[in-house]
Design a protein around this nucleic acid. Sequence first.
DNA 1: AACAACCCCAACCGCCATCTG
DNA 2: TCAGATGGCGGTTGGGGTTGT
Length: 312
Amino acid sequence: MGHRCCSKQKIKRGLWSPEEDEKLLKYITIHGHKSWSSVPKLAGLQRCGKSCRLRWINYLRPDLKRGTFTAEEEQIIIDIHRILGNRWAQIAKHLPGRTDNEVKNFWNSCIKKKLISQGLDPQTHNLLASHKRSSRNIISHNNNQNSNSIFMLSSQNIPNADPLGISQYFSSLPKAPPNIVQTPSAIASSEYQTPNNILSNYKTLDFANELLLTENCFPSCPNVWVSRFDDAEDFGVQTTLEEGTRVQVQQEKEKSCVEKGIDVREDNYKDSLEMSSFESCNFDFGLLESVLASEFISDHDVNYMDEFAWNF
DNA sequence: AACAACCCCAACCGCCATCTG
DNA sequence: TCAGATGGCGGTTGGGGTTGT
């Protein structure tokens, strides 16, 4: 029961022989692949087009990296998977020379086990039930696919790495505004990785930007949090701004700056510095995690914590 | 040495979205 | 507008290599 494209032809299955590889490579190099369904016939192969496409993408493509994954690549996979879930093709886009199949196999054969051995659920990246102290102490880490809650941390305002100070700081926080949109940076910062650890793994500014979606709350629409980046939906962000809205947002910002007596250019400049401030953040999120999982959290409403947002 | 159990990963399968006539 | 073809993706399988007994 093959794919429709190869149901009519006599096709070969299984591993590719070096001869087949050579034929396919030669054909694609010379002619390209406008239509995969016609490739096998034209290349003299008894394979279906789909099989040829897969062989090219996963094995013959000249820009493939091969070899074992580096620790850096592994960390990138884990970080993006935490945000995107099993979207292997999307994850592979951030790993030059790696295919979705490769990433998927590496995840299933290696990373998954590693996470489980660390007591983490490989799907949600949350602590496994057996590793949680009690249901009351569970911190609701954001799961990109089904959670609308938010959990953002501010490195600016949290007392530096002092458990008691952190607890006191939590206690002093006001109630979170409703209807907050979940954002990638929220997800990223709510987990075990420190933001600067995560960012240090990404070599492209574009992707760092994707992770660093900055949430702005505007005076006239206090319950609507917006993202500055176009591909936010890749990360489960539920708002996408149309161009008109962007203009409106910028106008709001300018208005807000005028009211506060701030030069909007200065404010924009501050925005541009957010990346570096994020990167230089030395707040110990692991420590925070342990504090949150300790006695402090049992004295506070988990939902309240879950809903709360701190701005960078 | 022989066999079983396990693991890895290339390739396949089936579903869905998009394209095309 | 619609149906068939095609491409793309994630889940799954099974062959072959490795490790354990």
